[in-house]
């Protein structure tokens, strides 16, 4: 039974693109409550609207219908810049700005103390000496850790992760997955992570949401969504008929 107020509430959230005679539905009336300090994975076939849903939550795209409420306050009551500092977003391919790792952390929050920079680096499993290394000289796995640390620098309450391991090899993938779980526990973050592999959803634990053609087809504990789907769409996804 859910007792605490959800950190994020989606109500009939929709996004359509195109003009009246050629409209495409990207997100179709999605409603869901995300609780604090939990990990959520979003599953679904390609083009189901997984990344688009994250973009609507971060307001990188504008919903065409419905409502997003963050900590009890409608999304549009926040200035877009304030909202995005509360709702961190990690892209599939990490982009680091020119300069050092420190420069990247300071870009997100210019008044970070030396102590805070060191803590962020440690929490993101970055060696302390790496802080002064050029961002260009890092591997993709290291870049993704820096991008995670940079996201944390704005002290978000919610982290939206868009397939953060898709460009990584299995060893780095495992490292980033454990880092995300750790950060969710240590910092009390709510994590919403897009993944296209049910196996990753099972490894991350928490709850899963299955999106099919922009609609929320199924949700619940990840084991149930992945292994014991209750809907026809869920069973088709399990049988890999939707991927």
């Amino acid at each position: 039974m859910r007792t605490s107020r959800p950190v994020l509430r989606l109500r009939n959230l929709s996004r359509r693109i195109g003009h009246t005679d050629n409209t495409r539905i990207i997100i179709d009336s999605v409603s869901f409550d995300f609780e604090r300090q939990k990990i959520y994975t979003i599953l679904g076939p390609s083009g189901a609207g997984k990344s688009s849903l994250l973009r609507l939550i971060n307001r990188l795209d504008e919903p065409t219908g419905g409502e997003v409420t963050l900590e009890g306050k409608p999304q549009c009551d926040y200035s877009p810049c304030d909202l995005r500092r509360k709702v961190g977003y990690l892209f599939q391919t990490p982009h680091l700005f020119p300069g050092s790792v420190r420069d990247n952390l300071l870009y997100a929050c210019s008044d970070l103390s030396e102590e805070e920079i060191r803590t962020l680096a440690e929490q993101s499993h970055l060696k302390t000496e790496m802080v002064d290394r050029s961002a260009d000289a890092l591997s993709v796995g290291e870049k993704q850790r820096v991008a995670l640390a940079r996201l944390l620098a704005t002290k978000p309450t919610l982290a939206l992760l868009d397939e953060p391991t898709s460009a990584l090899d299995p060893a780095h993938t495992a490292g980033i997955e454990s880092l995300i779980r750790e950060l969710a526990n240590q910092r009390g973050l709510t994590v919403i992570m897009v993944t296209h592999t049910p196996e990753q959803a099972l490894r991350m634990g928490g709850e899963s949401l299955l999106l099919v053609s922009g609609r929320l087809a199924e949700h619940g504990p990840c084991d149930r969504v992945v292994n014991y789907p209750q809907t026809e769409s869920g069973r088709m996804y399990q049988r890999k008929e939707l991927r």
Binding site: N58, C81, R84, F91, Y107
Partner: peptide, 13 residues
């Protein structure tokens, strides 16, 4: 696009 949206997602104008 990625660099600009990364900055926007970090709360930049």
């Amino acid at each position: 696009r990625l660099a600009i949206e990364t900055a926007l997602a970090l709360g930049k104008s």
